[in-house]
């Protein structure tokens, strides 16, 4: 059964009863929240996602108002991971964004069965593109544009590399868009479904983009890495790929990984195998149309 097959009422009730189990890639998440905005966000962005039977869940999460007298003074929300809250409370209207961050935190902090790099992953024709990127480099915008132009999204924040076979594993979860990129994506892709924005977060305004049905439907299909590309948006720049040193790419991904040093020698081997399998490029762009065209040529080359 898919989440979208539940009525709005059923979804709210299940969520309030701690009876909603969402499957995102290899993980089953049991979700608990009394908040209508969380139910609405899930309905808007996760409708294509399958529900789990709930016998075993990888993560148990809750988003709701904190206890204590403060909640009567200023409405706040908090995130709980199986009874523990790793974050400070946030303003109540950040509830859905907090759930998304909390889900990322669950994966990044626990799924050490994978090497986890801070990078977006997309796939076309069986070949995967890994895009590390510094904050502000335009990684999420480019990821969103590529997904909406036919690339399959595996992940926009966490690249999961299976330690058993070195293949990339998908999560298929929504893309997190920040500030100006929310409007840019909406203008370029009028059909894109974007959730309610959360204003004044630590990342500015944040809104999440619904993954394409293909990305969700084929989430279990692992992908073979083919390219590591470092995108950078620059005003007026012509879209252009240029070679990037593999050694430098290795160091960059290793130092921006979630668990590279934790995995020790295995982390080194997995990251080295990734670089061996990939062509590494820098990519500079200013116009999304040009960027999408360059990547389409890359995929058919």
């Amino acid at each position: 059964m898919k989440l979208g097959e539940l009525s709005a009422r059923e979804l709210r009730d299940r969520l309030a009863d701690n009876a909603l189990v969402l499957r995102t890639g290899p993980f089953a998440m049991r979700m608990h929240s009394p908040l209508p905005q969380v139910a609405d966000g899930l309905r808007r962005l996760y409708a294509d996602f399958p529900l789990g039977d709930g016998a075993f869940c990888d993560f148990h999460v809750r988003v709701g108002p904190p206890t204590g007298i403060r909640r009567w003074l200023k409405p706040q929300i908090n995130f709980w991971y199986d009874g523990h809250s790793p974050f400070k409370p946030l303003p109540a209207n950040h509830a859905f964004a907090l759930l998304e961050w909390g889900m990322n935190w669950c994966v990044a902090g626990h799924a050490h069965h994978y090497l986890m790099l801070h990078a977006a992953v997309l796939e076309q024709n069986g070949r995967a593109l890994v895009m590390p990127g510094d904050p502000g480099a335009g990684k999420s915008t480019l990821t969103a544009a590529l997904m909406l132009s036919g690339w399959r999204l595996l992940s926009d924040e966490i690249a999961l590399i299976d330690r058993d076979d070195g293949l990339l594993v998908g999560l298929g979860r929504p893309v997190s868009l920040k500030n100006a990129s929310i409007d840019v994506i909406q203008q370029h892709f009028p059909d894109a479904v974007i959730g309610a924005p959360a204003h004044d977060t630590h990342k500015g305004t944040v809104a999440h983009l619904r993954p394409t049905p293909d990305s969700v439907a084929r989430v279990a299909v692992k992908a073979r890495p083919a390219w590591v590309i470092f995108p950078r948006w620059r005003e007026g720049a012509e879209a252009r790929l240029s070679p990037h040193s593999r050694a430098e790419a290795f160091l960059h991904t290793a130092s921006h990984a979630f668990n590279y040093s934790l995995l020790g020698g295995l982390g080194f081997d997995l990251n080295a195998a990734l670089m061996d399998a990939c062509a590494c490029h820098d990519f500079e762009y200013s116009r999304l149309e040009d960027a999408v065209r360059v990547f389409a040529e890359l995929a058919t080359s």
Binding site: F56, D58, A111, H112, H113, L262, G264
Partner: peptide, 21 residues
């Protein structure tokens, strides 16, 4: 041990090995 549980145990062993080192 059931398949969905094994990755959790592998992850936990990795954490322990790293901490011990």
């Amino acid at each position: 041990i059931p398949a969905p549980v094994r990755p959790h145990l592998a992850a936990a062993r990795t954490v322990a090995a790293k901490q011990r080192q």
